[in-house]
Amino acid sequence: MTDTDVLDGLVTQLGSFGVRTSRLFGEPALKDVEGKTFACLHGGALACRLGQGTQAHTEAMAMGDTHLFDPSGKGRPMPDWVSLPEAHSARWAEFASAAMSVPH
């Protein structure tokens, strides 16, 4: 399955909320109806903008094998974003949905 297939599957699971595919840091991403990126594929994981301090962020960080998204790999993580490895792909749509509803 390609990255495009994965994102298309997430778009389908999220329903018709105006979600579309795009790019972020050169990687396949999802944007909301306002054009704001809320999730992207990076290194075999799905990174979601869950909002630091939210229930979804806390739950994602407690799952194990997750970490704050650091697209540069230089120790500068984005605190609102959580990277969910493929081992948690069964919950990617759930966390993408949560990310889609986090205020910008």
Results as ranks from 00 to 15, higher is better:
91 R>F: 08
8 D>P: 00
102 V>Q: 13
2 T>G: 10
68 L>A: 10
71 P>Q: 09
70 D>L: 05
90 A>P: 00
77 P>C: 06
40 C>H: 15
11 V>H: 01
65 D>W: 03
15 G>K: 03
5 D>V: 11
33 V>P: 00
74 K>M: 13
51 G>D: 05
61 M>T: 12
65 D>H: 15
80 D>F: 01
60 A>V: 03
40 C>P: 00
10 L>C: 01
17 F>G: 15
51 G>M: 03
95 F>C: 05
94 E>A: 08
66 T>I: 02
38 F>G: 06
83 S>F: 02
5 D>W: 00
99 A>M: 03
86 E>H: 15
25 F>A: 09
29 A>V: 06
95 F>A: 04
40 C>R: 13
59 E>P: 00
91 R>H: 10
39 A>I: 03
51 G>Q: 06
22 S>C: 03
83 S>N: 10
35 G>C: 08
60 A>G: 05
102 V>K: 06
75 G>A: 10
22 S>A: 15
3 D>T: 03
31 K>A: 14
63 M>K: 13
21 T>R: 15
90 A>M: 08
94 E>L: 10
8 D>C: 07
79 P>A: 08
92 W>N: 00
50 L>T: 07
99 A>I: 05
96 A>M: 03
34 E>P: 00
46 L>A: 04
91 R>Y: 06
24 L>W: 14
17 F>D: 11
73 G>V: 02
101 S>C: 10
7 L>H: 02
37 T>D: 09
9 G>P: 04
61 M>S: 14
60 A>M: 07
90 A>S: 14
40 C>W: 11
79 P>G: 08
53 G>H: 07
77 P>V: 01
54 T>L: 01
50 L>E: 07
53 G>M: 03
18 G>T: 01
37 T>A: 14
68 L>H: 12
52 Q>W: 01
87 A>W: 01
21 T>C: 09
34 E>G: 11
46 L>G: 04
98 A>H: 08
37 T>S: 14
34 E>R: 15
94 E>T: 11
92 W>V: 03
98 A>N: 01
79 P>T: 08
24 L>M: 15
41 L>H: 07
6 V>N: 02
17 F>W: 07
12 T>A: 14
9 G>W: 02
50 L>K: 09
89 S>D: 07
34 E>W: 12
11 V>E: 01
5 D>H: 08
100 M>N: 07
94 E>P: 00
19 V>H: 12
40 C>I: 05
76 R>S: 12
57 H>I: 01
20 R>N: 04
96 A>I: 04
41 L>I: 12
58 T>R: 15
83 S>E: 11
89 S>C: 13
33 V>D: 11
4 T>R: 13
52 Q>P: 00
61 M>A: 09
65 D>N: 15
100 M>T: 00
5 D>S: 11
1 M>F: 03
16 S>V: 10
92 W>H: 02
26 G>W: 11
22 S>M: 01
95 F>I: 00
11 V>R: 13
98 A>K: 11
63 M>Q: 14
21 T>P: 00
79 P>F: 07
57 H>G: 04
80 D>V: 00
44 G>Y: 05
62 A>H: 10
82 V>C: 05
8 D>V: 04
60 A>I: 05
49 R>A: 13
85 P>R: 11
99 A>S: 12
75 G>T: 07
38 F>M: 03
48 C>R: 04
21 T>Q: 15
30 L>H: 06
62 A>G: 10
43 G>V: 02
21 T>E: 12
